[in-house]
Every structure is written in structure tokens, then in C-alpha cells.
Computed example of a mutant assay.
Amino acid sequence: MNQEDYAPEDAYDAESATGDDAEATRRDAGEAESSRASRGWWDRNADDYQSEHGAFLGDDRFVWGPEGLDEEQAALLGPAASLKDKDVLEIGAGAAQCSRWLAARGARPVALDLSHRQLQHALRIGGEVPLVEADAGRLPFRDGSFDLACSAYGAVPFVADPVNVMREVHRVLRPGGRWVFSVTHPLRWAFPDEPGPEGLSVAASYFDRTPYVEQDEQGRAVYVEHHRTLGDRVRDVVAGGFRLLDLVEPEWPAWNTQEWGGWSPLRGNLIPGTAIFVCERD
């Protein structure tokens, strides 16, 4: 994918399955178009994604991003012992690796994803985790259904109205419930999406919120990602009814030698790649 000067960070990796004829641009993209593009992109790319990154993600590992920060050590949802008998919603679950980790610790997770093909991979891997195909902006659950909610690079970067997602998560959580989600660190949008030295020079305005869009020859979006500044993300959390407890910016660990799209040891040792928001419902 040739991102030219647009160069936002894609959620982990976003090589378009439509081929070289997909045009990368920056333009407005509304809620319906963004949702349709995300469903199609992940349905087309799920096989390659799981094949390429499945070993790193594991079948039942809870990893927050390409740096490799593991919930086992981070305990952002709370101590592992506290997860027992908790109802947990994973949003943008992909193949439900995080949900399997939660289930192994006695939680009762539900794995939700927009992509049918991603959930087929969840079925392939197996386990007793309930799977739900739905949009994060219209969660098909009753009010107060869950104790915790989490999302590792799922849904939030791809939606045109993140506050709506926050409010939906707030609605389905019980009072005191924790909501933890990770996204590409907003700073990375100013840099080219390259793992080498060419990815260390500012190429675009950090303050340009225009969505990154890949579109086909008819101008239809086949991939959409939305940029929010760090301040925007904080305001979205508050507007959704949450208190921000922590903002975690994982450092790149010495053991991680992989390159994943624009993520690499070179860049990871110099600039943040992931932002994790730890929030609580009043």
C-alpha cells in the first residue's frame, strides 16, 4: 500500500486486499461508510492477518499491541484473581484470543466483532467463548450486562463517532465497571507508516483529523481509519460518561525484535506506538 504523504498508522497492519489499484487519500467518511469498509476489509484480510500474526497473538494470549504488553503483567483490567466470575465484553475481538485468556482465569467473556470471517477464525481455534457479530456502535446487549469491557486495537480507530461507542460501552457496563482500550498512539499520525529511518521524520500535521481512506476505482471506501489527537481521545472518554484512570504508553521491550507494519524496534525505542486508556464507569 502506497500511503504517500498521508501515512497514518493503521491498526496493527492494513495492506489492502483490493490490490495496487486502491487509492490512498484523506477525505471525510461517515459512520455508515466507515462501518461498511471495516466489515469488508476485515472479512477479506482475516485469513492473511491471522496467518501472519497468529503466532505473536497466540490462541489464548491477551496482548495490548505490537509492543507485546501482556495483560498477564499489566493487569489493566485488574488483578488476574479479580477476574473470576466477571462478565466481560471484548469489542473488536478478532479471533477472540483475549477472551480465551479471560475465560482461562474464570471470567465469563463475550467476544464481539464486526467481521464474520474473523469470528470464523475464532471458531477454528475453538474454546467455549460466546461469539457475537455486531457493530460496536450498536451493542446488542441490555443495560448493565457486563462488569468489564476491553478492546485491543478493535473498533475504536475505525469508527466515525467514537463518543457513540463510548456511550454504548457505558450503557452495557454496570456501575464501577472498567473499560480499557488500546489504539495507535495519536502522535504516530504525523509520521510516515514505515518501520525504518524514513518513518522518523514528520510528514503530516498531527492536528489534521481528516480520515485516512483507501478507495476503489469508483471512489468507494474499502478501508477507513479515523485520527483523533490525544486530547480528543480524552474528551471522547469523558463525553461517554467515563473517568480516565490511566493512560499507558508502552515502551518497546528489548525482547521484541519484530516489525509489524510501521511498528519496529527502531521506532518503538524513540516514539510511542500505542496508547491504552483505562477508564471507569461511575
Rank of each mutant, 00 (worst) to 15 (best):
A22F: 11
A107P: 02
E128F: 05
P162T: 10
S182N: 09
R178C: 01
D147N: 13
G154N: 07
D282S: 13
W101A: 03
L230Q: 11
G177V: 03
R178Y: 03
Y212P: 00
P79F: 10
A37D: 03
R100M: 07
G241K: 03
G19Y: 10
H185M: 08
V224S: 03
V88D: 02
T229G: 12
A149Y: 08
Y153G: 00
G219L: 10
F191D: 02
L270N: 01
G177E: 10
G261H: 05
G30L: 11
A80V: 15
M1V: 12
G240L: 06
A29Q: 06
P192L: 08
C98T: 14
T229K: 06
R188N: 09
W189G: 15
P79Q: 08
D43T: 11
R243H: 13
R105H: 15
G268Y: 04
G40E: 15
A11D: 11
R209I: 07
Y6P: 00
R167A: 08
T274R: 00
D216C: 10
V132Q: 04
R171E: 08
N256G: 05
S182T: 10
D113A: 08
R228M: 05
Q215K: 14
P109K: 02
E71S: 09
A80N: 05
Q3R: 14
V172C: 02
V63C: 05
G268D: 07
E168L: 03
D10N: 12
W263F: 15
V165M: 13
V180Q: 03
E217L: 13
A80P: 04
D87L: 02
P175R: 10
V237Y: 00
V183F: 10
G127Q: 09
E214P: 00
P272V: 01
G231K: 08
A81N: 09
S16L: 14
E90W: 01
I125F: 10
V129E: 02
K86Q: 15
D60I: 04
G273C: 08
D232C: 06
R281N: 12
V234D: 00
L245S: 04
H116Q: 14
L187E: 04
H185I: 04
E67Y: 01
W252E: 07
E249I: 07
L270Y: 00
F141P: 05
W101Y: 15
